[in-house]
Design a protein around this nucleic acid. Structure first.
Lengths: 98, 98
DNA sequence: TAGTATAGTTTATATTATAAACTTGTTTAT
DNA sequence: ATAAACAAGTTTATAATATAAACTATACTA
């Protein structure tokens, strides 16, 4: 792509972008919250969270809340940077005639 | 997705978005021009142009320029509307804390 | 006329997204 | 106490997508 910057494939996904969008505005969020906010299925969310983690864009802590398993996600600095860069890149696509 | 609008899958594709981004700013563009501007391979471009056409977002005219085959693409009204809507939807994802 | 270039299309493959099925454990009703 | 339903995920299978490789057809060029 000559005039269009490459879009980070990790972020160029509807659900992963939604997750990142939530996480960037909040200190942390748990699995259930992310599921409710995004409307995703558990399976899909689980997979996409894994990918974001593998990319180093979020950290995932698995523990228990009382007796129930509980997963907390938090955006990393790398994740914030990648998100910002993605937004900047997208702008090149969205602003026609430039 | 409850708080995030669904992103038009036809447009949520790097190459198709690039093509639409070019076409929205220009009266028409031919295959070769789109290929150069996007840096895409011919095969990929051919396939994605087909999909945009199938979606009714662009028109494709195949003819000859002298003796050489020549394909001209033009955005449709539906395509412009879809593009604008996509941009609006994306904003919901990009503006954190909203 | 053999070789290279142009303008694509078709087909095959690799990657992704998504849903369905499953696991593990908990709470609730009987 | 135990079966039924629920919660929080994970794993696996399938469907959809993107992309590249191979191919077609014609034209130009040495």
């Amino acid at each position: 792509m000559t005039m269009f910057p490459k879009l980070d494939p990790i972020l160029h996904s509807e659900l992963r972008l939604a997750v990142m969008s939530i996480l960037i505005g909040v200190d942390e969020a748990d699995f259930t919250y992310l599921k409710k906010q995004t409307g995703a299925t558990s399976g899909n969310l689980s997979v996409q969270i894994d990918k974001l983690m593998a990319a180093g864009y979020i950290t995932v802590e698995k523990g228990f809340k009382g007796k129930v398993p509980h997963t907390t996600c938090k955006i990393t600095t790398a994740g914030q940077e990648a998100f910002n860069k993605y937004v900047e890149s997208l702008k090149e696509y969205l602003s026609a005639s430039k």
